[in-house]
Amino acid sequence: MDTRFLESFVTVASCGSIAEAARRLNLTPAAVAQRLRALEAELGHSLVSRTGRTVRPTASGLAVLAEAHALLEATRALKAAAANDMPAGQLRLGATATALTGLLPAILATLGQNFPRIEVFVRPGASVDLYHALLAGECDAAILVRPHFPIPKSHEWLTLRDEPLVLIAPEDTPIEDPHAALTQAPFIRYDRNQWGGQIVDRYLRKQGLKLREWLELDALDAIAALVDRGLGLAIVPEWAPPWPEGLRLQKVRLDAGDVRQTGVLWGRSGPRIAAVRAFVECCQQSL
């Protein structure tokens, strides 16, 4: 059995769409569909059913899916072992939205140049979700916001960027006193469910500011775009560029606030530890 075909089936089952699975696998939808047909012919059972553009596993597909994850994981571990501790095989990374655009591209470019035998899969998500995915073994390493609680001893942390809090406002808005400006304009809040948003919330509570809140968002680029249109002011971490193009914003640093740390978190051991260490090495080169 070609494990690539099995991986295609698992990806289709996860996405619920052949088109989306093809995008993730960097294949054409026709190639993914062909792999599915070949796997079904080999196993002698239909694995998926199609309703419009939605694809769902059949009863046989669900039975295969239960075993497929373990088989694919074992295959990846064999590839890593066969490399004799040389960085190779699949590396499952997690990254926040700002890390995906501001930090990860340069790191992956270095990784691809220095360690071409490593195959990278990137999972986007919020820091809290990536943290739990890492602890559950669903990711090998993740670039995220440092949690406000101690990191488990089974994992290691490397800070890549310190991001102070900044007040952002339209470029032509006069700001002499940041706190006075915040109390006079509508406030766009960074989502308190996000670890970065909790840093903003602690700052506001510490300063005792009473604001006219009208919107709470978890997307920093969307917050910046709304501020640019004059819809309010916001406090955000000064995340790694690029920021959205064409925005005319001013940034006022809030020195009394906590600093958001963005970095890489990884487990100390595992079947892909050589690839993880290679990734961390590339992260260190980016500092």
Rank of each mutant, 00 (worst) to 15 (best):
D191W: 11
G197C: 11
T173L: 15
L167E: 03
Y190E: 05
I168R: 06
L165Y: 07
H179K: 13
G196N: 10
P186M: 05
L204I: 15
Q198W: 06
R205P: 00
H179S: 07
P186F: 06
Q184P: 02
D172R: 15
R189V: 00
V200P: 03
R189T: 02
A181F: 05
I199E: 12
Q184V: 00
A185M: 11
P186I: 02
I168K: 11
K206A: 10
P178M: 11
D201T: 07
T173H: 14
H179C: 04
H179T: 07
L167P: 01
L182R: 02
P170E: 01
K206C: 03
F187G: 03
E171S: 09
A185S: 12
A185N: 14
D201I: 00
Q194R: 15
P164M: 12
D177E: 12
R189S: 09
Q194M: 07
R189I: 00
I199P: 03
P170Y: 10
W195A: 09
D172A: 13
T183C: 11
Q184Y: 03
P170R: 14
R192G: 08
V166W: 03
L165A: 12
D191A: 14
R192F: 01
A181K: 14
Y190H: 15
N193F: 04
D172C: 06
D172T: 10
P186C: 12
L167F: 08
Y203P: 01
P174W: 05
I199M: 12
P164T: 13
Q198N: 10
Y203R: 14
T173I: 09
L182N: 05
H179G: 01
V200A: 04
P170F: 02
A180N: 07
Q184I: 00
L204M: 07
I168T: 15
K206L: 04
Y203L: 15
T173N: 09
L167S: 02
A180E: 11
L165P: 05
I199T: 14
E171D: 09
P164E: 11
E176N: 11
L165Q: 14
P178G: 11
D191C: 11
E176I: 04
D172Q: 13
W195T: 06
E176D: 09
Q194D: 09
I199W: 11
E176V: 06
I168M: 14
I175Q: 13
Q194E: 10
P164L: 10
A181Q: 09
A169G: 03
E176S: 10
Q184T: 05
L165K: 15
D191P: 00
N193S: 10
F187D: 01
Q198S: 09
A169Y: 02
V200T: 10
A180S: 13
Q194F: 01
Q194C: 10
R205C: 00
I188W: 13
V166E: 08
A181P: 04
E163H: 07
D201G: 06
K206G: 05
R192Q: 09
D191S: 14
